[in-house]
């Protein structure tokens, strides 16, 4: 079995990368898929959202530095759902300046062995466009881009697409790119116009279910719970359940 490696990325902050990763991953795990999520942001928000708060716990940092393996660093956090935390040295990796080192390739190499028993690996990227995001772009074959429905998010996406196209040219590969509309406010006209603009440029690449903005999604990280645990059966839980179905079936807007 070969794992699908999906980078959840958007260099713009506040678009719902971590919320999407946590809840989509849990939705897929509840459907029986074997999932590993990697907290690739030194701020460790993904781990916190899943209830793991130890700052000393090592994770992807030690795998990238060659001191641990993918299998060793996985923490089972829910049924079918494993987490690899960022680790205290992830920040150091971002600042590595060793001459001759191939810093962009560390994550790809780290994920090469030991991932075969997982159906999906999600990499929750930091809101930046530095070395860590470059590592994620090297390692992933698929990109999931959470997008809010506002103008500045479109502007940010334009920049992100420029970066992605450069990587595609240099690495000679074509990513499978999917967009998820997050923090969606259906009553706003601008939301519909943003979606309509996106459809023009990304036909059949926007997942069918938009995840609506709700208070519950903002609240659940502070309890270390996913929306399925914090507000089961509520609107947001249903959105993510539907989104997971779209993701597996390839259902697009």
């Amino acid at each position: 079995m070969t794992s699908r490696i999906v980078a959840v990325l958007n260099q713009k902050g506040g678009v719902g990368k971590t919320t999407t990763t946590v809840n989509l991953a849990h939705a897929l795990a509840r459907m029986g898929k074997k999932i590993t999520v990697i907290d690739f942001d030194p701020q460790s928000h993904l781990a916190v959202a899943l209830g793991v708060v130890s700052k000393q716990q090592t994770g992807i940092d030690e795998i990238m530095l060659g001191h641990a393996t993918f299998t060793q660093q996985q923490i089972p956090v829910r049924e079918n759902l494993n987490l690899i935390v960022a680790g205290p040295r992830l920040q150091e990796i971002e600042q590595l300046r060793e001459s001759g080192s191939h810093r962009g390739d560390l994550l790809r190499k780290a994920l090469a062995p030991g991932t075969d028993d997982r159906d999906l690996i999600f990499i929750d990227c930091p809101p930046s466009s530095g070395i860590l995001v470059a590592n994620a772009l090297f390692a992933a074959e698929e990109l999931l881009v959470p997008m809010t429905s506002d103008y500045l998010a479109l502007q940010g996406l334009s920049h992100l697409m420029g970066t992605i196209k450069k990587f595609e040219a240099v690495l000679n590969k074509k990513y499978r790119l999917q967009i998820v509309m997050s923090r969606y406010i259906p009553t706003r006209r601008l939301s519909k116009d943003v979606v309509s603009t996106l459809k023009k440029y990304f036909p059949q690449q926007i997942l069918a279910t938009p995840v609506r903005e709700t208070a519950a999604l903002a609240e659940c990280p502070s309890f270390g719970k996913t929306v399925f645990e914090y507000r089961p059966g509520w609107r947001s839980a249903k959105d993510f359940e539907a989104l997971a179905g779209d993701f597996l079936a390839g259902r697009m807007m």
Binding site: Y151, Q155, L157, M161, L190, D193, S196, T197, K200, Y201
Partner: peptide, 11 residues
């Protein structure tokens, strides 16, 4: 449209 300049037009 509520969107003026289209930043994705270059694509």
């Amino acid at each position: 449209s509520m969107i003026g300049y289209d930043p994705l037009a270059w694509m």
